[in-house]
Amino acid sequence: MEIDFNKMFRIMIFAMRVNRSHPDIARDRKWVLQFICVHGIFFIMFCALVYSIVFYDIKSKDFTQACSNGAICIVFIVVTFKYSVMLYYQNLFKDMIQIMKNDYKLSTELPLEEQQIVLHFALKGKGVLKLWLIVSICTASLFPVKSIVLMIYYKIIGDFKFVLLYDLTYPAGLEEHKNEPGTFAILYIAFLFYDFYSMFMYIAFAPLGPIFMLHVCGQLELVRNRLLMIYPNNSFDNEKVLNNFKDIIVHLQKIYSFVEDLKSSFKLLYEMTLKATILILPITFFLVIQSFKDGEVSLEFITIIIGAITLSGIPCYYSDLLMETGESVRLALYSSKWEIYWDKRVRSILLVALVRTERPVAIRSMFGPLCLVALTDVFHHSYAIFNLMNAAWN
């Protein structure tokens, strides 16, 4: 049984290559021109959103529209930050992906039971990717689907009019002509690009952290199984057990090194992700409730809510799982029947390993470990902001 990283996660790799963020892509002049063109269009549409908020929505006290535009602006900020992280830690991501590839290749030489462990966690990572694919496509597609359905509806009732992918107030010269066919087509394509560029960026980067975490969980599970089987059938061979312990400690050191790289590359990103979720959840909930009051259903913002919860929830859940798996390794060290046999060398190694594993194996944001407790705090803060917005508006 062979696990191929490129085949297992080909959708994520394809998305990385489409938006030119894959760590194997050379950052040469060709890439710079591509990045300026692609991200430049993205930035122009962001500026249009900010212009509408500052010069029209706030001045006209249209709080609902300001929140709507603000939610789309947060998407730009998060996507841009993700891209920046991928560029800054390009070599680190490249090394971690290569380590995963090597581990998958080495798994073919493992016993069948251990191969199944590696495959189990690889398939879990693939499941995370599929979940993100569904959430991203649903969120991105609802905007064009809604506009197309409305245009068809207006055509059927004999009152056809153009419906922009996402409507906002443009500068005076453009606002007057936005419903003309040529201008409409340009604005529609520009926002369609904004929509699908964001989608590809989320597919490319959002599953990467959880995939790494699950791989670490799989490797820790291998260590745990080996520790529990280190004294098979109560037999004892000093040198064999000592060598087995040494191999396990070396394996653990490689895992902890991988985790440190994971912490370094994702720490700031996950802090920003949690903060962005705190802001975007109350805003989008407020928009959805306001749309219900107006007799409408904002499906596109409902999917944004689901996406925001998924974006914060999945890393927190799997980081929590990582802590549990690390703790299970520590318990396996202590439960490996070392007390039955006397060997000072083995006990010295075991003592060092127990001290090292006392510190939780967890991914951290800037101010604390990423876990379900941190996710609960995010929901508490979001709820507080929502109550404040609701009280201020009413």
Rank of each mutant, 00 (worst) to 15 (best):
F5Q: 00
D28C: 00
K30R: 00
C37D: 01
H39I: 07
F46S: 13
S52T: 02
F55W: 07
S84Q: 03
M86G: 02
Y88E: 01
N91R: 01
M100C: 08
K105A: 09
S107H: 10
H120K: 12
K124T: 03
G127N: 08
L129A: 11
L142K: 06
F143L: 07
F143W: 08
P144V: 05
I156R: 04
D159I: 07
V163Q: 10
D167I: 03
G173K: 05
T183C: 04
T183V: 05
F184C: 05
A185F: 02
L187H: 02
L192Q: 04
M201W: 05
F205A: 10
P210A: 10
F212A: 05
C217Y: 08
C217I: 13
E221G: 14
L228K: 15
N244R: 10
I249V: 11
V250P: 01
S265N: 05
S265H: 02
Y270A: 05
Y270T: 09
L279M: 11
I283S: 01
T284P: 01
F285C: 04
F286N: 00
V288F: 06
L299K: 09
L299P: 08
T310Q: 14
P315K: 06
E324R: 15
L331T: 15
I340F: 14
W342Y: 15
L351C: 15
A353N: 13
R364P: 07
T376Q: 06
F379Y: 12
I385F: 08
I385K: 03
